[in-house]
Structure formats: structure tokens, C-alpha cells
Design a protein around this nucleic acid. Structure first.
Length: 108
DNA sequence: GGTTTGACCCTAA
DNA sequence: ATTAGGGCCAAAC
């Protein structure tokens, strides 16, 4: 029996993000019925196994910035993965940015 | 068990 | 417009 843990729900929701779109942490938190647990979403991804095929790279913060740093996965890799999906990523002030107006996932 | 910790977000100054 | 501070809540310790 699979446990209906917060982590499982988060991973499940991330798997639904369509290619070429991006979602924010807060957005995902809201979708798992814990609108204030945005930070937790990041905590889940922090412990994500490397073999995970889930599109974790489509998750960014509310400003459209890639928040990753000094973890097992470097920022440039996430930026490149997004670009490969057709998402424009710009580099500003030492960080990568995505235009949320264009690429934010609009779930139903 | 309690305490600490964040891939964050929102508000106020 | 930018910056600073506090809240959040589940997982890790």
C-alpha cells in the first residue's frame, strides 16, 4: 500500500507538469492542498533521488528564478533542461530566469 | 518525542 | 521601485 505522504503527492503533481511549461513551488503546494507549504516542496526535491525521472527542473520560485544552489544538481543543468524543452531562459545577476507570463503552467 | 531546517512566499516599511 | 523580516509546515535530525 503506497503511503499518501506529502512527498508522494508532490512528486505526483510535478509529473503532471506539461513539457514546455513551468510551475512554482507555491502553485504545487496549493495543488497538494497545503497552500502554505511551498518551502516543503523544495525540501522534497532536495531529497529527490538522482534516478528520478520526474520533471523536477520545471519547478521554480514565484519570481521565475531558478533557486537551486550548492546541491547535487547545479543550476546550469536545470537551465539547459528547460531550454531543451523550448523555454527561454535568460541570465541576469548571476541567476537564471524564466518568463512566467509565458511559460507558467495553467492547471485545471 | 522536541528542535531545527529549509530548491519559498507575502507583507510592510 | 527595492529591501527586510516573519510565517509557514512537513521532513530530517
Amino acid at each position: 500500500m503506497p503511503v499518501d505522504s506529502f512527498s508522494e503527492r508532490v512528486i505526483r503533481v510535478i509529473g503532471k507538469i506539461p513539457k514546455g511549461k513551468a510551475a512554482t513551488y507555491g502553485q504545487i503546494a496549493a495543488m497538494v492542498y497545503s497552500p502554505r507549504a511551498a518551502r516543503m516542496v523544495g525540501q522534497v526535491l532536495r531529497h529527490l533521488p538522482r534516478r528520478m525521472t520526474a520533471p523536477w527542473h520545471r519547478v521554480i520560485n514565484s519570481k521565475g528564478m531558478i533557486s537551486i544552489e550548492n546541491l547535487n544538481v547545479p543550476k546550469p543543468e536545470q537551465a539547459r533542461r528547460l531550454q531543451e524543452e523550448g523555454i527561454a531562459v535568460s541570465f541576469r545577476d548571476g541567476n537564471y530566469w524564466v518568463d512566467l507570463k509565458k511559460y507558467l503552467w495553467n492547471p485545471k
